[in-house]
């Protein structure tokens, strides 16, 4: 038996919608599991990815922590895939890009009603925000992109099937979506 392909997934500034869509491949996950083992992913709850063949990244880069995770992922994964609108162009979180992040923080923590301590939280546990939410290809080299919000389950299926068969992944026409 050939060694199984190790796949890891993660979500940065995303909503886990892409992960949910992945699971929509439904019963096809069973034959997939014959060929694939999951490293870090919501299925395994591992905190750090080990060396992997394929890394699927959902979500854009909105803060320091996202960048840290993304870089680690890039190091561990032979093939890195940007999954979904947010990873590919920032998506919904990037709607904040037209505002100054300092103004946003001050607005939220100073002006919104119901806050007694008018300070921007400065806990080392809280990662600092980037000025803009960025797609992941602006921070690391990305090998493939699976567009869609979320990408349809068929896109995941077609993409992974191609990859596992050693073909250059090509999405069937209907599987390329931007929304």
């Amino acid at each position: 038996m050939t060694a199984k392909v190790r796949v890891a997934t993660t979500s940065l500034a995303g909503c886990f919608g892409c992960h949910m869509s992945f699971l929509d491949i439904d019963e096809r996950i069973l034959p997939l599991l014959d060929k694939v083992t999951f490293d870090r992913s919501p299925l395994t709850d591992l905190k750090h990815a080990g060396p992997c063949d394929v890394g699927l990244v959902e979500g854009g880069v909105c803060n320091e922590d996202n960048l840290h995770v993304l870089r680690e992922f890039r190091k561990q994964c032979k093939v890195l895939v940007a999954v979904g609108a947010c990873a590919i162009n920032g998506g919904l979180p990037a709607q904040r890009n037209q505002f100054d992040v300092g103004d946003l923080l001050r607005h939220v923590y100073f002006e919104e009603p119901g806050l007694t301590r008018r300070v921007v939280p400065d806990d080392p546990e809280l990662p600092a925000l980037f000025d803009k939410v960025r797609p992941i290809h602006e921070l690391v080299k990305v090998d493939y992109f699976l567009p869609g919000c979320p990408p349809p389950a068929d896109a995941f299926w077609a993409f992974l099937s191609d990859l596992l068969e050693g073909r250059d992944p090509r999405l069937p026409p209907g599987a390329i979506r931007y929304d």
């Binding site: 300092g102 923080l105 980037f130 602006e138």
Partner: peptide, 17 residues
């Protein structure tokens, strides 16, 4: 990266103090 990572974090760090 396509941009200066440290610079891109500066505004938020200033806001946090």
């Amino acid at each position: 990266p396509a941009f200066d990572v440290e610079k891109a974090l500066a505004a938020a760090r200033v806001a946090r103090g």
